[in-house]
Design a protein around this nucleic acid. Sequence first.
DNA 1: ACGTAGCATGCTGGACGCTA
DNA 2: TAGCGTCCAGCATGCTACGT
Length: 341
Amino acid sequence: MTNKNPTLSDVARASGVHFSTVSRVMNPATRQMVSAEVAARVLAEAARLGYRPNRAASTLVTRKSRIIGVVLPDITNAVFPPILLGIEEGLRKHGYLAIVANVGADEEEQLFVINRLLGQQVDGLILATARRDDPVIKMCIDQNVPVVTVNRSDETGVASCVVSDDVVGMRLAVEHLLALGHRHIAHIAGPENLSTGHVRRLGFLAAIQASELDPSQAFVFESSGYSRECGKAALLELLRQSPRTTAVVTGSDLVALGCYDAIRELGLSCPEDISVVGHNDMPYMDMIRPPLTTIRIRHHGIGTEAARLILQTIASPDSPVLDVRLKPELVVRESTASPRA
DNA sequence: ACGTAGCATGCTGGACGCTA
DNA sequence: TAGCGTCCAGCATGCTACGT
């Protein structure tokens, strides 16, 4: 066979030692079992031959690949890159690598991708695709696959999750609008089958109830998704049903961008006619016109925390299921202002 | 034409033996 | 006793050889 990658045995032959010795040298944890002189010789030969340990082979034996599968629902959504950065940073510190797969909301597709990842012997999964009662997560738990959900949670409590504290986030948004003098505030909620959609809706209603506002003045409209198109359609319909609305709190920045589209189409302006609050603080939300007031989620921190949790779950499979909620913050820019007198 | 057994792959990790 | 070699089981899977 030509162009065959050098193996442990090739390095052993070139170094004049047994392949077990090479194996010990290549593993930093066992290198001290070999004299410094031999270790240096083996490392030099390995480098000369361009030897790379065959991870597929070592995974066969150790049943550990040191690879974590990360499943995203929409890689084009700018929320996910910073989360991914945090995950990769957290994993790499411990010698782990992430394989990223993008799947839609389709359950069959998710199952296909997850089974492929498990077939690759990933040591665990970080899922950003979770629904509130997610059969895919249940399947993983039933098969003893370490799982952590990120950004969204499965509410059955079978898997640890790392999310932003959406109740706090919505309270910050509503209090900001109340302080500006808004009395007709609406919420464009995300899909109810996602924890972000559900919890942000509850957070919005709780914040309204905690205020002196008459709850009947608050209006909730469910958007069919977290896209710009959905946001535009939602605000157009919302204003048709609730024309007195002067401020809208959205479930995501993309939905807020769709609101900008709707406002423009109606010949209105933001924030003079309608104030808009986003959610997530995706990159470049300060660059758009008007710069978006939003709830900043600690994406990178969510990622590093998810990495920490999955490694902890792998190391101690019986460790308790954790629900980690990171505190968001309000970022006031120019898409919110006092309502017209 | 089948079914079955054995082997090869590349590596780890442990038990044990040998040598200086 | 340190430093190494030897041997073996085990892992998933495809391939080959053999027997029925």
